[in-house]
Design a protein around this nucleic acid. Structure first.
Lengths: 233, 233
DNA sequence: TCAAAAGTGTTTGCCGTACACCCATGG
DNA sequence: CCATGGGTGTACGGCAAACACTTTTGA
């Protein structure tokens, strides 16, 4: 079943790399395609932008329609415009990315027929993806690895209340290296933007850890100088 | 004189923010437009991408045709896709940037009729630019300000042989702050990627300064670990 | 000889890093 | 009582920042 693209003159599309963290693993959101080309392949959620919507709005809409996720805080990543990246014609794609909290309740139900399903897949052992989506993913992954060093993106991936060990293991997964527990905790707490809660972890068969919250207001106050420079992208 | 765009369905274009450094000032390359819309306005060099060229190739071609500069090492900056950014229809633009050496010889002669002329303009006191080009410039400027802290982009702007004072004044201009001379020189020299030449500055009416060269090979050797992470974008 | 910029060291505080043991809890 | 992770402090080295005077040169 061939589904022709509406126009081959300079069509542009959106593709989204959505990161999540679950069961100690970094994951991204994939769909199984229900359309040619690459029907039945796994792909990043993506589709063609409408004429009367901004690319930012289009990205939000497309992500919603393919995965059921609304109002995700996506940001632009990079634009991919090789001539032959799409087998049916010229499609320039603008890639977006986001780091979000995976919560069990959110059901990933595509609204459109273009995707059979949407699901989380570990970034380790990603299958071959449709189009140039593997390249797009790699670009996104490099970006967040770098960004982890100077922006508080880890907290977007964690549950609202988390332990320092969870935070550390997230850093370790993204950077793919072990960190020293004492140094990590000392440094994180020294910033002053973590709020210690009176609650403790529950349901573990060992000493329960304290829970913390990320205090974004304090973070902004502390880093407002740097943020003036960093605000974009 | 109205010049209609070829198609209004999802046209995409390139705009280039080309930085240079001359007479102690940071400058960018502008054109004076010779086409509606915004005829006679100043604008970033930019035009529409062809169907059969990648966006990277298109960016190089367009920059050449509007300014006469060939083979510039441009990199992608960001894509701007608001619905109404172009008064004649839907044009998504992919912005590129580069830092280059302004040399007196390079004549800036547009090849096409779309630009009357191309010229360097200080980033201080930029005039109002066509379309959303002021926003694009600001995005590029923020990007290079940040990047200056972790990549050797300053050397792309300087002549091949330069003095430490020239290097420092470039850092000061980009970051808009004064730096301490002793600390600056100590730090720069400690990296080990500056090669001291036996030559000295000429034609100055005070003590001539030593000239230095940036040794990119050494730089790459020293920073290859970090570069593994930083290579992209 | 004067004006203008070149060139040069030391001290201090902070931050990153290395490193190992006892504690609390649930099963 | 045992297994599992939770939680804690110190010492060292390197880097950034503050700070002022002498030297060289051409006009």
């Amino acid at each position: 079943m061939e589904t022709a693209l509406p126009k081959f003159d300079s069509v542009f599309s959106i593709d989204c790399v959505i990161f999540g963290f679950e069961a100690g693993e970094l994951k991204i959101l994939l769909i199984e395609r229900n359309e040619e080309p690459f029907k039945d392949w796994f792909a990043l959620p993506g589709y063609i932008v409408e004429q009367d919507e901004s690319i930012d709005d289009g990205a939000k809409r497309i992500l919603y329609e393919l995965t059921g996720l609304r109002n995700m805080p996506i940001k632009q990543l990079h634009t991919f415009g090789d001539v032959n990246r799409h087998p049916q014609g010229r499609v320039v794609t603008i890639a977006y990315f986001a780091l979000i909290r995976i919560s069990g309740q959110k059901d990933l139900t595509p609204i459109t027929q273009y995707a059979k399903k949407a699901f989380w897949h570990p970034v380790k052992d990603l299958p071959k993806l449709a189009f140039d989506h593997t390249t797009i993913f790699e670009t996104a992954f490099r970006r967040i690895r770098r960004r982890l060093n100077y922006q508080p993106i880890a907290f977007d991936l964690l549950p609202e209340k988390f332990t320092l060990t969870q935070l550390q293991s997230l850093y370790e997964v993204i950077q793919d290296k072990k960190l020293d527990k004492r140094n990590f905790r000392k440094k994180m707490l020294s910033y002053g933007f973590l709020k210690e809660l009176s609650e403790k972890q529950k349901g573990v068969s060992y000493r329960a850890a304290k829970l913390y919250k990320f205090d974004r207001r304090k973070y902004n106050k502390i880093f407002q100088n740097e943020l003036n420079i960093q605000t974009t992208e």
